[in-house]
């Protein structure tokens, strides 16, 4: 079994952003630039999450997806604001391989069944964003972590799998962007109760956290963001005028890191996992990789 390392790129308008617990979004660059670098450096898949679509309607996400899918040849999952089979079709036509749905699926669970029938189970990722309650259970949230639902996250996971989800993306909202490590109990509870693969998300701040998510959390794949973004964004050269109207660029200007987050590279993560007896894909032929990265 080879675990997948999946960079998650949160997108707001034309920009890659990153927040903490989905809030205080910082602009870090252009998603296509990060996508290309991650592809070249051995990312196993990519996730694009449109962080405002479910609240404010559509934007240029489809254009970004189309541009990206011409240059990267690994699976691309796209989510954020998809409400219907027709929405899903549009994103797939733009070049996504899978879609991630959360808000719309909780509002109308049959969407999972309809979508998996129309496009195949493996195309449908159900995203579950959860907050731990004082009694130790987990509640599913929608609208980018803003809206509670009263639905038990573990029960919802089981139901989503029964309805035909191909994979589950499980995010701890409290850990998201904090660098404090994954909520291993949440990951383990869900991974242990569904027959389909579970992607752990929210909290990776050290490479060792990924190891924990796999060994203790029983995750089949791991989603990372800050861990990579804050390393890779230093390499990018930007014209600040590109970002003038797009919110908080202070971080971009300073090229600073994040207190709780170490900087990692994809090859570094893979090397660490292999050294700790965790199977993962590593670049087989350096010359071949070099030849193809146009």
């Amino acid at each position: 079994m080879n675990v997948r390392i999946i960079p998650r790129l949160d997108i707001k308008g034309p920009n890659l952003v990153k927040g903490i617990r989905f809030e205080g979004l910082r602009v870090l660059g252009k998603p296509e630039d990060f996508a290309r670098r991650y592809y070249e450096h051995g990312a196993d898949e990519l996730i694009y999450m449109d962080v405002v679509a479910s609240l404010y309607g559509r934007n240029s996400l489809l254009d970004i997806v189309e541009r990206t899918s011409k240059e990267i040849f690994i699976p691309l999952t796209v989510g954020g604001g998809l409400r219907s089979v027709e929405d899903i079709r549009r994103v797939l036509r733009a070049g996504a391989d899978k879609v991630s749905i959360n808000t719309a699926a909780l509002a109308r669970p049959d969407l999972i069944q309809e979508a998996s029938r129309a496009f195949g189970s493996s195309t449908i990722v159900v995203s579950i964003e959860a907050i731990r309650k004082p009694n130790g259970t987990y509640e599913a949230y929608v609208d980018y972590g803003r809206q509670s639902t009263g639905v038990d996250a573990v029960e919802w996971a089981t139901r989503a799998a029964e309805l035909g989800a191909g994979e589950l993306l499980v995010t701890s909202i409290e850990r998201e962007g904090t660098g404090k490590g994954f909520d291993l109990e949440l990951t383990r509870k869900i991974a242990g109760s569904v027959p389909i693969p579970v992607i752990a998300a929210g909290g990776a701040g050290r490479v060792s956290h990924i190891h924990e998510a796999i060994v203790e959390g029983r995750a089949d794949a791991v989603c990372v963001a800050s861990l990579l973004h804050y390393h890779y964004f230093k390499d990018n050269d930007y014209d600040e005028s590109d970002f003038q109207t797009e919110g908080n660029i202070e971080h971009l200007r300073r090229k600073g890191g994040l207190a709780n987050v170490e900087e990692a590279t994809l090859p570094g993560i893979k090397e660490y996992l292999l050294a700790h007896a965790i199977g993962c894909r590593w670049p087989q032929q350096a010359c071949l990789t070099g030849a193809e990265t146009t």
């Binding site: 079994m1 080879n2 196993d44 493996s122 027959p195 389909i196 693969p197 089949d220």
Partner: peptide, 15 residues
């Protein structure tokens, strides 16, 4: 199974 751990079906991975 792998090392007594039941693997998920579908297989979704780089193999």
């Amino acid at each position: 199974q792998e090392r007594k751990r039941l693997l998920k079906v579908p297989q979704v991975q780089w193999n």
